[in-house]
């Protein structure tokens, strides 16, 4: 009776269990508890939420292990943490801390502008961002067990997340309608491995769970993303940069479950107080756009 850890099924299966849920960014144990009490399916432990990274600038790195361990001790739900793109030593450190999922994230400053982490080499599963299907399949080819569409993190502007969900969905639908002999060129054009392109064409979906992230700030935003085919949502700055985090967090959880019921979303949206102020993505100069990071 050999017990095998770190299999693709165990890694991808973990993401299946998060479906229909909300994963919330938290910077300390107190916030983590608020998130858990509000019904979050997991928390993302990080030192600064994207809105602060954006405001303060500088190089953003993996969080302090002490801080991650305090959050792990405070909650019973899964704890995720971010490593810089390509920084496989940060990822090893996070794995040794026993985090449940690593986000190889464009929100942190990249450590490698050519390569991502070889994620097959780890027991802990990884989630990676993608703006289109080719990028998603390249990450899966490197071993990502979950994909999140990228949005413009720390803005509270959902337009980028929307654009990328439409793009990924549209490209999947396009592959499904192709003749089999056209898939070779499709794979070449999207710079993705042929085997994965063929799999997506046959099944009409990604081989891993697809969440969405970046700019989600309200219950209606969360429901919008579910309606676009996301299996669940990440909410970063949107909760703890708002007037009433506990109530807003619970409202986003409700709206994610009842994404197709406007009455529930309306009730969840009542009296939440100030949403995060937000930045229009269109006002951000191109070099400051995080979603463009990743290759």
């Amino acid at each position: 009776m050999a017990e095998v850890t770190g299999t693709a099924r165990v890694k991808r299966g973990m993401a299946e269990m998060l479906k229909g849920g909300v994963i919330m960014d938290v910077v300390n144990a107190e916030q983590a508890k608020i998130a858990e009490d509000a019904g979050a399916v997991a928390v993302m432990a990080l030192e600064r939420v994207p809105a602060d990274i954006r405001a303060q600038g500088g190089v953003a790195r993996m969080s302090d292990p002490d801080m991650i361990e305090k959050i792990q001790a405070a909650v019973s739900i899964p704890v995720m943490a971010k490593a810089r793109i390509g920084h496989f030593v940060e990822a090893r450190v996070l794995e040794s801390l026993g985090v449940d999922y690593i986000d190889e994230s464009e929100v942190l400053t990249p450590a490698d502008y050519e390569n991502h982490i070889d994620k097959w080499d780890f027991t802990v599963p990884f989630v990676c961002g993608a703006t289109n299907l080719g990028e998603a399949l390249r990450r899966i080819n490197e071993g990502a067990a979950m994909i999140r569409s990228k949005g413009e993190a720390g803005t509270g502007d959902v337009s980028n997340a929307m654009q990328h969900m439409r793009k990924i969905g549209g490209e999947i639908r396009r592959l499904s309608s192709m003749r089999e002999d056209e898939l070779y060129v499709a794979a070449k054009e999207m710079a993705a491995p042929y085997a994965l392109v063929k799999e997506v064409a046959e099944t009409g979906k990604l081989p891993v769970v697809l969440f969405t992230a970046g700019g989600i700030a309200t219950p209606a935003d969360a429901a919008l993303m579910k309606s676009m085919g996301a299996d669940g949502v990440f909410i970063g700055s949107g909760i703890f940069k708002s007037g009433n985090p506990a109530q807003r967090a619970a409202a986003c959880v409700k709206a994610t479950t009842f994404w197709d019921d406007p009455k529930v979303i309306a009730d969840a949206s009542r009296g939440l107080g100030e949403a995060m102020v937000g930045i229009n993505v269109a006002d951000l100069p191109a070099p400051h756009r995080l979603a463009d990071r990743g290759w």
Partner: peptide, 26 residues
């Protein structure tokens, strides 16, 4: 935690002696 999640073939007492592939996640 998730790094300890595993799969294994185990017996299941439904009258069959065939093992069952069991996936344990947290």
């Amino acid at each position: 935690r998730q790094v300890d999640s595993f799969e294994s073939d185990i017996p299941f007492a439904d009258g069959s002696s065939d093992l069952i592939r069991a996936v344990f996640i947290r």
